[in-house]
Write a protein that binds this DNA or RNA. Sequence first.
RNA 1: GCGCCCGUAGCUCAGCUGGAUAGAGCGGCAGCCUCCGGAGCUGUAGGUCGGGAGUUCGAAUCUCUCCGGGCGCGCCA
Length: 659
Amino acid sequence: MYRHLERRLTESVREFLQRAYSLDLATIVIEQPPKIEFGEYALPIAFELARKLRKAPRKIAEEIVAGIGSVPGFERFEIAGAGYINVRVHRAEVAAALAADQIPSSDVPPGKVLVEHSSINPNKAAHIGHLRNAILGDTFVRLLRFAGREVDIQNYIDNTGVQVADVVVGFLHLENKSRAQIEVLAAAPRFDFCCWDLYARASQWYTEDKQNLQARATTLHAIEEGNNETAQIADLISTAVLRRHLETMDRLDIEYDFLPRESEILHLHFWDAAFAKLKEAGVLTYESEGKNKGCWVMRRAGTSKTLTTEDTGGTEEDKLAEEDQKVIVRSNGTVGYVGKDIAYHMWKFGLLGRDFGYRKFYRYPNGHECWISSTNGEKDHPHFGDVAEIYNVIDARQAEAQNTVAESLRGLGHGEAADRYTHFSYEMVALTPRCAADLGYELTEEDKTRPWIEVSGRKGFGVKADDLMDVLVSSARKEVDSRHPELSETERATIATQIAIGALRYFMLKYTKPSVIAFDFKDALSFEGETGPYAQYAVVRATNIFRKGGFDADTFSASGIDFAQNLAGESGNEIWELWLTAAKTSYVVSQCIATAEPAYLAKHAFQLAQLFNTFYHRHPILAEADEDRKKFLLATAAVVRRELIRVLAAMGITVPPVM
RNA sequence: GCGCCCGUAGCUCAGCUGGAUAGAGCGGCAGCCUCCGGAGCUGUAGGUCGGGAGUUCGAAUCUCUCCGGGCGCGCCA
């Protein structure tokens, strides 16, 4: 609603500037006045035009206010200060539309969106860093769907890499396990936890004797080759760990549609198809001398073109400086990780000319089917890939590799695809030195002064996702037990889980992506202040009002309410602010999508909850003697409750019936 | 050395398409249950927006520079 009105305002202003001054501004800045009583929108445009028109800002503001005429939905335009134009909406109209849940239509861009997230190496348990990735990705998916987009969710599985090889080495060389024994272990609950420790041990073992690295090389080679005992054991392990990851993420209501695996990228020869096109387009060049002799290389993303055909008149050949080269194909003919990623992304955009085989892999309790790549798949399967836009939720450390992939698409002549390629970059989750020490990590004096300590899977050092959720659930459970002893065991367990997940998801979303999260149990376990449970509790309070008053919150009718009167004056301002904030949801969602930043949604949820709590405290609704006033207050609670539930749902947070 | 990110209250972070008095949570201090009210509410203290220069009517926000911290830069993935 808010977004809809803003757009209309923008158009009106633009149209007026065109008509009055023959000006066409690229962007018209619209902000919100510092106080609600000044209006809903503020235009600082007169300041911007002052120079251009050689007039005083206030004079321009006067001209705009006098000339813009009436705009539907808006009450009036006022001049404030040195030249601001404050704009007031028709509160009653907006409130009535909001109460009736009228959703203005908005145009949805065509085409499917592909969001890739999680992409955890299937060799050990998921940790808090993976949680941030998955929660960001899943929330972004929900945001896109909220905005009406069709979305495919993919989780890339590197099942043939060194990390899997390391665990295979652990089982075969350190534990001397047979395949049958590993099968038994893999079927046990939380097999991924046992891999977590084994991976750390294997990593340690390599450092004890360089000879041990030979085992890794042999194992990795066998895995890539396929069709042998080692490869089968690797597949057994990685598949079992993958299932565990899906279970872990399902605890958070995070699901996937398709799991493309590196083994199929290899065995279905995606690279060969990509290589041919890359050579043909001249994206890759062969180095016949120097450091990278015998390799196929491409320009490293972000390096400047020192010599281009344009600069030199179109005749001279590009020559890449060695430090600007990124090796894609090694001199032994094998392709590196970036090369495989290029092929995979060509497939995503439907530019490769090859497809995966597909088979069903995992059925969620709600019936949703998750597919996996396969060399020989099932006949009937959904269509994946060939999408209009992609978002890759990958941490900031891989920015350069991501840019290289995008640049390769550009080099292939698919600039449009490259433009619709978004590296959804976020910073890592580390531990506060205090937290690291509590986990048994020995801190050096230097460590103690650091803002954070990085987790290390290789050292087995970090906080596992399932462990964190267990701690959160039991902590929430303690609270629920003491507050609601009358509820059944099952009910209390469900509520505790909802609160725990709400707290976790909110915690991971409240930080903006470029901020490193220095994790500490104290912060993550907080259920007070700016947290998920705070927002959940606001909804529960609203629900309580309706329950105890004998009304149905979902079907509460606002007909007959005199919004104009109730929203007028000083007391009207305070409640109007709540309505206005509730009206902003779709506006915030579109901001989140445009900036690829879900944190704004978390802020919005908190702000709405906070305003509601203040309202709740100030207005004893059920005790209100004036029936019309009471109905208005109830309508306020109903609208805020509805919007808050929606916002939380977009963050993957559900609300318990009681708290 | 090159590239990217960060530096805002005691702590953790918002605010950055330039705009009206720089905000929130936590922590501190002082208060609030006539109940739809305590996973809550109110008040209060707390800031050279890392330093400097520039652009501008106007800079936390843009540019440059310096300082401090982090992360990348491999024929690893």
